[in-house]
Design a binder for these strands. Structure first.
Lengths: 226, 226
DNA sequence: TAGATTGTTAATCGATTAACAATC
DNA sequence: TAGATTGTTAATCGATTAACAATC
């Protein structure tokens, strides 16, 4: 376990990709893998991969061979916290909130949503995907009692700041924010913004470029060449 | 409409936040807003905001006053493609796939999921959140017939490349990839990776830091100061 | 040994920020 | 006019990449 180092956000975001590939080669019985090989598969610079791996690997990479696969898998899983579950609460049981409640794949990543909260009386009391929906007033009590440190925010933007304040007041240390708004929170509370609209914007810009290029009559074969 | 310019991915990702704030001040009757004011609210550098706004705004910012709010809103919505809907198909109706199918907020961002596909015979034929699930074999036919250019990939990592190949073969130009794997696709096909695991990793690292700091007996008041 | 691969130090690159003249 | 705000050019900063010596 080497979790005293802090990775840059960028490095952190590459870790799940390393992990996926390592698990795959591990299944095929590969015991040692070089940063060079990983870099080629994942289309990354090999020095970058080498540095990333050396940051989290408990043993040193061996020249001519590489890094031990099983150890890397363990190290990354440990580093990403997949082995000690983080309990979380979800605030805002709209369509996105329901979506996340129903996504049982989060447990693979060490996340466990224990309860949901909403202000809508029609929703409160319901059980959505096995999780009970409580009125927002009960948030603080439950968080304190269960020592919850993560809040997932899936309320409309106009209510997001208020809900965030409540989460902070309930002792939450990290907010996974799906609302498209910049939240104000004290320094010790991390706000991780999940910006699905931004992703769609990237797609949209690309499609527009593709379409205008096409309408300009640019030779489409230039794409398929090579 | 000023959509011949291309924004950097970073600028594109700031746009939804600008839009949210602009809509809010517009509701309050504000007609002109300065980049300086926006920057303060959103905690961004004012030159950055000014540059971003000038990139997409059809009129120039006026010294001493700023940019016209309504025009900015229109320009950003146009630029992000919110006004001309992009049709998309979804491949992989697991828990995450179902989640996205059920998220009726995508329409606000110009995305319309017209159909879903899966290989699982138990799922094929079902109607999930008003969308019919077809067998994967029908993907190409439907995409070509309906001129679909966006594919949403929510299959497990091990099937993602195969599914991506099918999407590409069906004429898709952009893939919104929720699988944790680096996809190989031709140059003209954009792969936008949505890495929820990476976000969780950022949360996890922060919580670990918080916890170790606490156990070290660091004065917690340093957080609340200021 | 020879050569592939590691780890480190220096160079590059691009986004952000700072400085400042132009303008309403 | 005076001063706030814009737009532009130059400096900074940090991540990525390149170069190269060390090592198995």
């Amino acid at each position: 376990m080497k979790n005293d180092v802090n990775l840059t956000v960028q490095a952190l975001q590459r870790m799940p990709y390393y992990l996926q590939h390592l698990r795959k080669v591990d299944e095929n019985g590969v015991q040692i893998i070089s940063a060079t090989a990983m870099a080629n598969v994942l289309d990354l610079n090999e020095v970058l991969v080498r540095k990333d791996l050396s940051m989290i690997c408990t043993s040193k990479g061996k020249p001519k061979s590489g890094f031990p696969v099983k150890e890397l898998i363990d190290n990354i899983e440990d580093y990403l916290g997949y082995n000690n579950t983080m309990d979380a609460v979800l605030v805002g049981v709209g369509s996105l909130g329901k979506a996340l409640l129903g996504n049982n794949e989060f447990s693979k990543f060490g996340l466990n949503i224990v309860a949901a909260f909403d202000i809508d009386e029609d929703i409160v009391g319901q059980v959505v995907c096995g999780k009970k929906v409580f009125p927002l007033e009960k948030l603080q009590n439950l968080c304190e009692r269960m020592h919850i440190h993560i809040g997932i925010l899936t309320v409309p933007a106009e209510f997001a700041q208020e809900a965030a304040d409540r989460l902070v007041g309930s002792g939450v240390r990290a907010i996974w924010n799906f609302a498209l708004i910049k939240l104000n929170a004290p320094d010790h509370v991390l706000v991780q913004n999940e910006n699905l609209a931004a992703s769609l914007a990237v797609l949209s810009q690309h499609l527009r470029n593709e379409m205008t290029e096409e309408s300009k009559g640019v030779d489409l074969n230039e794409h398929t060449a090579l």
